[in-house]
């Protein structure tokens, strides 16, 4: 495994929970905090931390609304986030291809 290949992996995307969040958000227009919590199996605090990290990196945007007088946070991926996720996927594929090559 080439060290430079590992270094190219985006640390923001690389974390499993954040990767799961971006995988969902790239598929849909938006997802609520509650849905992401259930999908990733995270606690409120843990998920908040990851969402804040993604938002501060510009990969997602969060919109707070009220549904039946209860606050709801809807998250959606930004263009920068899409690019980062797809770039991460591409790099993973390259690493896999590299690992499959017969060693000389």
């Amino acid at each position: 495994m080439h060290p430079e290949k590992i270094l190219q992996l985006d640390p923001v995307v690389h974390a499993p929970v954040r990767l799961a969040i971006l995988s969902i958000l790239i598929t849909v227009e938006g997802a609520s905090f509650g849905y992401l919590k259930e999908a990733t199996g995270s606690s409120d605090g843990n998920l908040s931390t990851h969402l804040t990290k993604l938002e501060s990196s510009g990969y997602i945007r969060m919109k707070k609304t009220f549904v039946d007088r209860r606050p709801q946070t809807m998250c959606s991926i930004t263009d920068k986030g899409k690019k980062a996720f797809l770039g991460h996927l591409e790099r993973l594929e390259k690493i896999v291809a590299e690992q499959k090559k017969p060693k000389k």
Binding site: P16, L19, A20, S23, L92, Q99
Partner: peptide
């Protein structure tokens, strides 16, 4: 990063994409 870790990441992505598609039917 070894092969298993990569496969785990790919598995996470596939599982989440499939879940999002199913849950938004």
């Amino acid at each position: 990063m070894n092969h298993d870790q990569i496969q785990q990441e790919i598995s996470i992505m596939k599982k989440m994409v499939e879940k999002a598609k199913t849950d938004s039917a």
